[in-house]
């Protein structure tokens, strides 16, 4: 290997989110949009705060309830969920679309809601952590996280659970390695992932997918 190749490998290694993460978590629309603008979601977030353009009202079906609110032309989906719909279970842990604290399902696909415009999700069915189970009747994946101590401070947890549900629905017999690779777009600072991996395995079994 030449030094150049190694440098390239190194860059890919440390910046692997750019490749792995986007392909894992951005929808086709998101990718197209970002590519067309050749910019990151960080720019989007920044612009969102700067921009003033009003899109008017949009409607999203969040957790089975239609939510209609005024948005800016650059309001992010995560801000729509947290601020307009008041569903604060979805968290924001970064400004570069890398931590996964904001993962929700849009039309059945897991999406980093900080990397999608609210307007792009207009008319979609969105499921957030509040929409998958209740404290009386947890979703099997939520149950598995509790039973396997898959959370500590709880901040990464909503995004982690939403990612995990999609991961195991796509690959019901995911190995430890596949689970670790699949959760690569969700950062947890507390658990060291050991118990998250255990939770996801147990969740897959419980879900009987």
């Amino acid at each position: 290997m030449t030094l150049g190749q190694v440098l390239l490998y190194f860059m890919l290694y440390t910046y692997r989110l750019i490749t792995v993460n986007l392909s894992n978590f951005l929808t086709g629309i998101q990718k197209q949009y970002l590519q067309s603008l050749n910019r990151s979601s960080n720019d989007l977030r920044h612009e969102c705060s700067i921009g003033e353009g009003n899109m008017g009202e949009i409607s999203l079906n969040i957790n089975g309830k239609v939510q209609t609110h005024d948005v800016g032309d650059n309001t992010l989906l995560v801000d729509f969920i947290r601020e307009s719909a008041g569903l604060t279970g979805t968290h924001v842990g970064c400004d570069t679309s890398q931590c996964g604290a904001c993962v929700v399902h849009v039309d059945g696909v897991s999406v980093k809601s900080c990397a999608m415009l609210a307007a792009q999700a207009a008319g979609s069915d969105v499921i957030t952590i509040e929409g998958i189970g209740t404290s009386d009747s947890l979703h099997p994946m939520q149950e598995a996280f509790q039973e396997n101590h898959g959370l500590q401070c709880g901040f990464c947890t909503p995004g982690m659970v939403m990612s995990a549900i999609e991961l195991v629905s796509k690959n019901k017999n995911a190995s430890e390695k596949e689970i670790r690779d699949g959760l690569e777009g969700n950062i947890c600072r507390c658990t060291g992932y050991h118990n998250i991996v255990k939770s996801v395995k147990a969740g897959a079994e419980k879900m009987g997918v």
């Binding site: 509040e130 947890l138 939520q142 039973e147 959370l151 709880g154 901040f155 659970v161």
Partner: peptide, 16 residues
């Protein structure tokens, strides 16, 4: 024993 605090975090009811 399983954690008493988990349900609120798992259902998005944590209050940060």
């Amino acid at each position: 024993v399983l954690r008493k605090e988990d349900k609120k975090f798992l259902t998005g009811k944590g209050r940060y």
